[in-house]
Simulated assay, not measured.
Amino acid sequence: MHGLHLIDELYDCRCDPQLLADAAALRGLCLATCSADGLTPVGLVFHQFGNALEPAGATGAVVLAESHLAVHTWPETKSVSLDLYVCNFSQDNSSAARDACRRLISAFAPARVLRRELVRGLPELAGPIDPTGESD
Results as ranks from 00 to 15, higher is better:
Leu10Asp: 05
Gln48His: 01
Ala65Asn: 13
Leu118Cys: 05
Met1Phe: 09
Val62Asp: 00
Gly60Trp: 09
Ser67Lys: 14
Asp16Ile: 11
Val42Lys: 07
Leu10Tyr: 03
Phe108Pro: 06
Ala70Pro: 00
Asp16Arg: 14
Gly121Gln: 11
Ser135Trp: 03
Asp92Ala: 11
Leu44Tyr: 04
Ala24Tyr: 07
Thr73Asp: 02
Thr77Arg: 15
Ser81Tyr: 04
Glu54Ile: 11
Leu29Thr: 08
Ala25Cys: 09
Asp99Tyr: 02
Pro131Phe: 10
Asp136Asn: 07
Thr59Pro: 01
Leu53Gln: 09
Cys34Ser: 01
Gly3Pro: 12
Gly28Ile: 01
Cys101His: 00
Gly121Cys: 02
Cys87Asp: 11
Pro55Trp: 04
Val71Thr: 15
Ala126Gln: 10
Leu10Pro: 01
Val86Glu: 02
Gly38Ser: 10
Leu53Asp: 08
Ser67Leu: 14
Val86Asp: 06
Leu20Asn: 14
Met1Gly: 10
Gln91Ile: 10
Val86Thr: 12
Leu82Val: 07
Glu124Leu: 09
Ala109Ser: 14
Tyr11Asn: 12
Leu20Val: 06
Ser35Thr: 13
Leu10Ala: 11
Pro123Gly: 05
Gly43Asn: 14
Arg116Cys: 14
Val62Gly: 01
Gly28Asn: 11
Ala126Lys: 08
Val42Leu: 11
Asp37His: 11
Gly28Asp: 15
Ala107Val: 00
Asp136Tyr: 07
Arg103His: 15
Ala70Val: 15
Asp16Met: 11
Ala126Asp: 12
Pro75Gly: 06
Arg27His: 09
Glu66Tyr: 02
Phe89Cys: 13
Ala56Trp: 03
Asp16Trp: 12
Ala111Leu: 15
Leu53Ser: 10
Leu20Trp: 11
Tyr85Gly: 00
Pro17Gln: 01
Leu44Lys: 03
Val86Lys: 03
Arg102His: 14
Arg27Lys: 15
Thr33Pro: 04
Glu66Val: 08
Asp22Trp: 02
Cys13Trp: 07
Asp92Val: 06
Pro131Tyr: 09
Ala25Asp: 02
Leu39Pro: 00
His47Gly: 10
Glu54Arg: 15
Leu114Ser: 07
Thr33His: 09
Gly60Thr: 04
Ala109Asn: 11
Leu31Gly: 00
Ala111Met: 15
Ser67Pro: 03
Phe49Cys: 07
Leu26Pro: 00
Asp130Lys: 03
Trp74Asp: 15
Ser94Ile: 10
Pro110Asp: 00
